[in-house]
Nucleic acid binder design. Structure first.
Lengths: 234, 234
DNA sequence: TGTACATCAGTGAACGCGCGTTCACTGATGTAC
DNA sequence: TGTACATCAGTGAACGCGCGTTCACTGATGTAC
């Protein structure tokens, strides 16, 4: 049953025409009709809500995320949200959790790609910055907002964050073992390197007018200097 | 003429008591009465508005900044704003401009404090991070929000930003000249260093639970590695 | 096999609120005559 | 010196809007008897 031919749709249009008087205000964009989930599948709406919110983030409308706006984007009525979330903060928490997992998984995967430890370190850092460049709105959501107090970041997210940061620490430690880094404290140097990566990702997207050094130049400096990489001896 | 004894104040209270019915809702916090500016001094209100907004930022209520909320904080009626600003974005632009000047001036001043170039570099970077630690809400306003499109950052602000960044570049260049840095490109290294400082300032205030290395440890690593400082030869 | 009922997956209308913006106004102070 | 007037620095009431939240409801689908 499509929207334009359903009896309900006709009724809606009639009512609005009358309510708006003869001059007739512009009709709001027709909400695509949503076939409700089958019995027992009600939980699917939770996913749909989260993905509607992610679509808003990706479209640069993160600031406009409200309970009603997410409901509109998801094609449902506002009260339906409450079956799945206590409020808009919980939705944002779920969005942050999902994006956070995505970032961490990409970093970990990249950190396993090469055999040379210096290359692995570069690959992990580049993966981090690639995410920030490919999904600037998601990255901003993750690192330029306060996380809602009850974001309820789960064990899975915490573990993935630990794994991603550990990729960095271990890469530096591997470089030390291979005689390619002078780091005296891989953890402390990883903290500094993460700071550098985040700062660059953040400033780069914010201040587009700044005369940034070209290409991978800054990443290279961050990784080599903060990872205390020593030239290969071959 | 104090609020409680002025005829106007009495009238207001009466009206409210009647409007709220006999049960009487809680009265809103009495707005301290504001003696209006003298004739010809109307421009002062602009400053008062900006400082009301800064107070809100410092109180952690930056997200709650609206035209009406700023007016309340300033002790004036909402329409009075329009004599001085086109809207809340212009207020925020002025706030950002003022905070930006403050940060840049502190960095420049610190960068002139010592005679040893390595000490000057450290001093400038520490001043940057000190601002972020002392005024975390202002720092977040400057670097974790989009700036309003019509923020109208003036020439003065641009010049001070250039001066502050130049302090960084010149400090590194001075270190090179003094044989204390291996930098082959002070500008590119300053970009990396600024990234590191911003990233650290930003992450440090955001993720308080993280096991940050103690004290100045991370700053030291950022400055020495990204500034490519060589040990003194004495 | 039929049928009454329970459950599920939502909806529509309504509420009170704070918001941005407009409009006509107020009351003190300076100024021209 | 007096007085009418202009200007300045704001105010108060009102508007329409989108918001979060509540409530009673709807209509399809499964289930017990």
């Amino acid at each position: 049953v499509s929207y334009s031919t359903s009896p309900n749709a006709c009724k809606l249009i009639d009512v609005r025409t009358i309510a708006n008087g003869p001059q007739g205000r512009e009709r709001p964009p027709a909400p695509r009709p949503r076939t409700r989930n089958a019995r027992g599948e009600g939980g699917r709406l939770r996913e749909e809500i989260v993905h509607a919110a992610i679509r808003m983030v990706d479209a640069g409308r993160a600031e406009a995320i409200t309970l009603r706006a997410v409901a509109r984007e998801a094609g449902i009525s506002a009260p339906s949200i409450y079956d799945h979330f206590a409020g808009v903060e919980q939705i944002l928490g779920a969005v942050i959790g999902e994006c956070f997992l995505e970032l961490n998984e990409e970093v970990v995967a990249a950190g396993q790609s090469a055999s040379d430890p210096v290359q692995r370190l570069h690959a992990g850092c580049e993966a981090y910055l690639r995410f920030a460049r490919r999904r600037p709105e998601r990255y901003a959501l993750l690192f330029r907002r306060e996380w809602p107090a009850d974001a309820d970041i789960g064990e899975q997210e915490k573990a993935s964050a630990d794994a991603a940061f550990d990729t960095l620490v271990q890469s530096i430690a591997d470089c030390v073992r291979a005689g390619r880094s002078d780091s005296d404290d891989p953890f402390a140097d990883a903290v500094a390197l993460w700071s550098g990566l985040h700062g660059y990702a953040s400033l780069r997207t914010m201040h587009e007018g700044f005369p940034w050094p070209p290409g991978q130049e800054t990443v290279r400096r961050l990784v080599e200097n903060l990872g205390r990489i020593r030239a290969a001896q071959d």
